[in-house]
Amino acid sequence: MNVFRLAGDMTHLLSIVVLLLKIRTTKSCAGISLKTQELYVLVFLTRYLDLFTRYFSVYNVLMKLIFIGTSVAIFWYMRYHKVVKQTYSKDLDSFRHYHLILGCFLMALLIPFDFSVTEVLWTFSIYLEAVAILPQLVLLQKSRNIDNLTGNYVFLLGAYRALYLLNWIYRFFTEIHKIRWIPWISGLVQTALYADFFYYYIQSWRKHEELKLPA
């Protein structure tokens, strides 16, 4: 474990806590894409298949359970909670995310890390996470005003993978000395997708203005 990976995991955890806080305290999920949340549930379920078969550390098991549990909880709130589900902007959440699932699955079949079920699904989860934020970014562009908690959620979610890129560079030079094409390229794509959001988020923070993405 290195400082970049720990910071990345904590930032990822914080993003989920911020989102859960927003939904629980405001009893609203306005501005949040249910489709992105569904994609993340799929990412965690297909990535952590080895949860009960391979033990790394208490930390590893705990965090996997927390990520699966919180992402399912957020999905449940947005889909089934009687008050929260009324605030879901269904008409704005229009991205065809099933295309993302199919595309990433085909990619994982063509370019898997290894031709076994768990490795193809692991690769699928890496590819899917890279594009999982797209429905959310599209929804933000359609939203007139983005509330602080939603902006912070997306920023933290993007920042965590950027920290993971630093973690991979660190591990390359200190322990692995091998190129990890699949997670690295996917992580680069994932972080690049946040580029313009990062720009407008930092601008709004510096100018103390409301966050607004150009349509």
């Binding site: 391979r54 550390s57 890390f113 290894d114 031709f115 699949i182």
Partner: peptide, 10 residues
């Protein structure tokens, strides 16, 4: 086969 890279990561 070999286990995928950085499997100890989240």
């Amino acid at each position: 086969g070999p286990s995928s890279p950085s499997k100890d990561e989240l």
